[in-house]
Amino acid sequence: MKSGPRRALVTGGSAGLGAALVDWLLANGYEVVVLDRDRPWTGKTSVDFIRCDLASRTELDGVLPDLVSGGPYDLVFLNAGINATGKFEALDPRTHVEVLRVNTEAPMVIAAALFEAKACRAGAAMVFVASLSHFTGYPGAASYAASKDALAIYARSMRKYAASRGVSLTVAFPGPLKTDHAERYSPEGADGSKRMDPDRAASLILTDALAGKKTSIPGAGNRAFAVVGRMFPKPVTAMMRRLLYDRLKS
């Protein structure tokens, strides 16, 4: 029983993992609504675009009705995120505020609004994109780590309620990706060759989401990292410190 084409919402769909998700969805016959700060730079014309800077509460409140009326959705990807790497105390307070607003508050507010307006079809899947950093300490990106951990636990807390509405919640924990975002925030001289291709991450996460899995950690290497990070938090955090924090300039 299907009424019309399936619809999907992707926040942060203009670049990186979000753009890869949008490509996959379009190729598989979805109608896609994209929310982002910037227009899709790949020049996608076949998506409904909603412009919004998620760091701004007023902008988000302004587009919430459009987000709801863009539904009902079969798939929702709360993917938009920003990072801020640097010594915690050296970063501007506004930066920490924006990281929390975009990465945590906005997806929580959007999810709550979609649930309240019943904007997800029964059998829909909602995906919260957290980070592999959930499984380790992340020195050099303290507020980012906080923002993604908070989001992952919000999703976990909402799972039962979502299930009562027929919606499955998946938390995705992607590791380092070959995106502009990752390159902008990684230290100089970091080895980018081991990062995962966003198209591959997108298809792995989508497969898990459509199967209704609770968590999605794309890639065997990343899954192994998550297990080791959980078992040996101290040495893994120390390793993360050498990889990022110790290479910071300021």
């Binding site: 780590a145 636990i153 919000y154 976990r156 309620y161 993360m240």
Partner: peptide
């Protein structure tokens, strides 16, 4: 901080503090 269906936003805020402390303790 590990999750709660009664108080999802509260649980999220406390999970955030947990992740923040793990990072900052090392920094």
């Amino acid at each position: 901080h590990k999750g709660s269906a009664t108080i999802p936003a509260y649980a999220a805020s406390k999970a955030g503090l947990h992740g923040f402390a793990r990072a900052l303790r090392s920094e």
